[in-house]
Nucleic acid binder design. Structure first.
Lengths: 157, 157
DNA sequence: CTATTTGCAAAGTATTTGCGCCGAA
DNA sequence: TTCGGCGCAAATACTTTGCAAATAG
């Protein structure tokens, strides 16, 4: 079966080699924001011959073709996620390093307008909120916000 | 004469050594978003004995005390700017790497609300827009937006 | 005086590259 | 068959650290 990313590779005219296919599959299945080491570790389970260098080369390639986006999310190493039609943003727990994704459609519109105001066409945007969990008082209301993913986090910076 | 940052250091109970004073002054005077090398080069003109390691140690210290904020702004190396009362954001020209600062007060409010909705207290936020200059049509309207700084940019990533 | 800080050089991370062999188209 | 991709190891880029000498409070 062909993963979403494999299809994008073909559409972009990329040669589909074994390693690329493996990495593409990993990327399609993993959730969260893996860094290169994680990707390498996972790809390694599909094909132990895949080298770290290839993972680096592949994510760079995918990024250049708009298939992946690079984030920092408060960690030192680069972390990646698939590009979506609409942007979503990240809320990072300063203590644990956990990342929560959230949507905020108005924001993108607003930012597009800001860019235009300065004579720019918006290509992409990164929004990272750093916060501390509220201990006390009113239980958080999360009645809106469609998708929402929490991940275990690497190092709490 | 004492720089703004020097004052902040004293308030934070930091020992004011020669190197720190020099770096603080550089930071107060430079505009833009210098990386560690730039700071070192500049500090070097004030006192040639200041080492790169000390610059690294000092920016880390200042960051921990909330005096400085670390940004990435599309480049690999960390870049710094003074913390202000209110956050401002960055628009990066994908071609040249130039950085434009802009204010968007509503945004911070909105983001604070989003964080609260997820049960978090907002500590800081980073917003980076990546854009391409509009060649054609209507001259950009910049009648609002208070402050605005453009800087020459290091490497266009 | 004493606990911190500094410079230096060496060690650590994160990422990229040169090169000869290998495989997809 | 051909050209680009791959693994490997070495190179590079950025940042941190151990240690002995220097210094702020």
């Amino acid at each position: 079966m062909e993963s979403r990313i494999e299809r994008l590779c073909v559409e972009n005219g990329l040669k589909m080699t074994g390693p690329r296919r493996a990495i593409a599959r990993i990327l399609s299945e993993v959730d969260g924001h893996p860094d290169v080491d994680e990707l390498h570790r996972l790809a390694h389970t599909l094909d132990p011959r895949i080298s770290l260098a290839t993972v680096y080369r592949t994510v760079r390639l995918f990024e250049q073709h708009g298939i992946l986006e690079r984030r920092s999310l408060g960690s030192r190493r680069a972390r990646y996620e698939m590009s979506g039609e609409h942007d979503h943003f990240h809320l990072i727990d300063q203590e644990s390093g956990k990342v929560i994704e959230f949507d905020e459609p108005e924001t993108e519109t607003l930012m597009r307008r800001v860019a235009a105001r300065h004579g720019f066409d918006l290509i992409s945007l990164k929004i990272e909120l750093f916060g501390r969990k509220l201990r006390s008082e009113s239980p958080p209301d999360r009645s809106d916000d469609a998708r929402q993913t929490v991940e275990p986090a690497g190092e709490p910076r």
